[in-house]
């Protein structure tokens, strides 16, 4: 075994005698110890004796999240398309309305970017009687990320899926968000443990839906198609699709070029093909990257830029879709 970084165990885990086999139904599942794959597994008797039934924690999570009006997942099958960037933009945009309380949660455990983008790097979490307090980056915008719990920003979190699930549960169960109007959840790329966990745990508390982010090239659309398929399988409503990094206006000559060419029609065509709403395209702007690196709100810094207008119209479309305005 490779030395996996040992953090304090978050939830008591069953002591398994061997690693889970390929088709393991999961030691926590109702079929634990009884599925086909369990025959002959050294863990069979251990799994069989574990308490069964619906996870009691789901009820706690549902109660905890009941004070949050709208919960939005930001998803994309592809990495680096701007999920975190868009999560931060969306949070800033919503928080610009002083009457709204907004929370942003970062579930990307292996590569948390949100603290940097919201300018909360290096903060630590405080815990109180009612749970962990989110870090407030402005009066009405709180955020939570795994990055706050790491001793050293360079250390890698080399965790297998199970351990990540435990942390996600802990995040949902123990973070004291208080009364929120919006909780925006940033996710890692792919369709795996984190995605399954967050949808399972949050399902009962009601997820408004998912905002799917893509870039125009087919290589990205290919993975995004898979993510939309995942949402269907998991019963998550897709609120709409945003195309990021579409087109670039040269600051020197104002000539427009398509850096990531939409050879197959880009996000608009995909949305049509999959029967989901298309919220619009956001152009590339070098200042977006710079604002994210320094943790400032791009929307506040460059309110007149075309990218800002595009982002705000996406946010409006999104709020419209969930029936908020």
């Amino acid at each position: 075994m490779i030395a996996v970084q040992q953090q304090t165990e978050l939830i008591p885990k069953p002591q398994l005698a061997a690693p889970e086999p390929e088709h393991c139904p999961g030691p926590e599942s109702e079929k634990a110890g009884q599925a086909d794959a369990c025959a002959g597994c050294p863990n069979q008797s251990i799994c069989e004796s574990l308490p069964k039934g619906p996870d009691p924690d789901i009820e706690i999570i549902t109660k905890k999240l009941s004070s949050i009006k709208h919960k939005i997942l930001v998803l994309s099958g592809k990495g680096g398309v701007g999920k975190s960037t868009f999560t931060s933009m969306l949070s800033w945009a919503l928080a610009a309305d002083q009457d709204l309380e907004v929370g942003a949660m970062d579930l990307d455990i292996c590569g948390p970017s949100l603290p940097k983008m919201l300018g909360a790097e290096g903060e630590t979490i405080h815990s109180s009687n009612s749970g962990w307090s989110p870090v407030y980056v402005s009066d009405n915008l709180g955020m939570m990320s795994i990055a706050f719990m790491l001793p050293d920003p360079n250390s890698a979190i080399i965790w297998r899926g199970n351990k990540k699930n435990g942390l996600i549960k802990q995040f949902l169960k123990d973070v004291d968000w208080g009364d929120l109007d919006y909780l925006v959840v940033d996710t890692p790329p792919g369709t795996s443990d984190e995605h399954l966990s967050v949808t399972t745990y949050m399902k009962d508390s009601g997820i408004d839906g998912a905002l799917v982010v893509t870039t125009p090239q087919e290589v990205a659309l290919l993975d995004v198609r898979k993510e939309i398929d995942f949402c269907r399988k998991a019963g998550i409503k897709v609120l709409g699709l945003v195309e990021n990094m579409s087109g670039f206006v040269c600051p020197n000559c104002h000539g427009e070029s398509k850096i990531f060419k939409p050879t197959t029609g880009g996000g608009a065509k995909l949305a049509k093909e999959m029967g989901i709403k298309f919220f619009g395209s956001v152009p590339l702007d070098p200042r977006i990257g710079r604002s994210c690196d320094s943790g400032e709100s791009f929307l506040d810094s460059y309110p007149d830029s075309p990218a800002c207008t595009a982002i705000l119209s996406v946010v409006d479309a999104l709020r419209d879709e969930i029936g908020d305005i």
């Binding site: 393991c24 297998r160 899926g161 795996s192 290919l222 198609r225 898979k226």
Partner: peptide
């Protein structure tokens, strides 16, 4: 199908 998602948890990916 190219649009199919592979929704797998850790042990299956490892295998």
């Amino acid at each position: 199908d190219r649009g199919n998602s592979v929704v797998w948890r850790g042990p299956k990916k490892t295998a």
